[in-house]
Write a protein that binds this DNA or RNA. Structure first.
Length: 289
DNA sequence: GAGCTATGTAGAC
DNA sequence: TCTACCTAGCTCT
């Protein structure tokens, strides 16, 4: 699920799985055939993420991948089956293979191309030594709503719609508040919380923003839904229904339109905002609207 | 099983 | 501003 934490996790997986050895590369779909031919049989030295962008180094080549909304990169044990669906790129190592499907970007860009992409991106809370001050200055000087600034990858790299909604809720800040009205301390606190939340996301492989105490509280408020650990639910198997419930109790406002806020029980609101769905609690998040 | 929706971006117009 | 990308999980029937 491609917000920044997923890409950092993916970079780590690719480096551990294929790093330091030659890889086979092919494009069963055909759309990356010439690029795959240039990678085939060469040594993959490592992969790195910056925001939602992934860079895979294969000797002197740099492969740039952006998963977009529904791209996936799935790793499995060999022997590899015949590809199904539209596999843009298949990497094959000694023990594993990995199929890339549906990316927005999959190109060989070279070191210079990578620098061009990085120059367009703001600091990434998951990188070492990010330029926090650049983020604070940019937000604190802007008339744009903070809900739009957090999604602008040139302001901050790696945050998507879930982290945007959740970090603003946790800070009690309205997404409609202009950046310049927040004050530097609040902007810095947003950054600090994103570092905590996104590192946790890398570790877990999913986004969880609820504080421990609020998990039970939210389950109570959602009294029309069974609790995630209800033994009567599907006989305790790890079914789709159970997985859905587990997901639904991981966040405060994202995709909880109309459901009670865990902190104040006000129904969570949602509306289309700059082309994306925006979720917030009008009771907890003070400011305009 | 069909239909809908989505954690996103680039490029055409 | 609209469309392509063409996946995958969910809801509805």
């Amino acid at each position: 699920m491609p917000e920044g934490h997923s890409l950092h996790r993916l970079a780590r997986t690719i480096t551990r799985t294929f790093g330091g050895a030659p890889v086979g590369a092919s494009s069963p779909q055909g759309r990356f055939a010439s690029g795959a031919a240039r990678l085939d049989g060469r040594v993959l030295t490592g992969a790195q993420a910056w925001g939602k962008h992934l860079f895979v180094e294969v000797e002197d080549e740099v492969l740039h991948v952006h998963l977009g909304l529904y791209g996936t990169w799935v790793r499995s044990r060999r022997p590899e089956p015949e590809p199904w669906g539209a596999v843009r790129l298949r990497l094959t190592g000694q023990l594993w293979y990995a199929d890339l499907r549906g990316p927005t970007a999959c190109d060989l860009v070279g070191p210079a191309g990578r620098e061009e992409i990085l120059a367009r991106l703001g600091p990434d809370p998951l990188r070492r030594r990010p330029d926090v001050d650049a983020f604070v200055r940019r937000v604190a000087a802007s008339r744009a709503p903070v809900g739009a600034l957090l999604m602008d990858q040139s302001v901050l790299a790696g945050v998507g719609n879930v982290y945007r909604a959740e970090v603003l809720f946790r800070a009690g800040v309205s997404p409609f508040a202009p950046g310049r009205t927040l004050g530097e301390d609040t902007v810095r606190a947003l950054w600090d919380d994103l570092v905590v939340l996104m590192r946790d996301g890398v570790r877990r492989g999913r986004i969880v923003t609820l504080e421990t105490d609020d998990v039970a509280l939210l389950a109570d408020l959602d009294h029309d839904r069974p609790a995630p650990d209800d033994p009567d639910l599907d006989g305790g198997e790890d079914t789709a229904a159970r997985r859905r419930l587990r997901r639904s109790t991981g966040v405060y406002v994202y995709r909880r339109e109309g459901r009670p806020c865990a902190r104040c029980a006000t129904p969570v609101r949602a509306e289309d905002f700059h082309g994306r769905r925006l979720y917030w609690c009008p009771g907890c998040q003070r400011g305009p609207r």
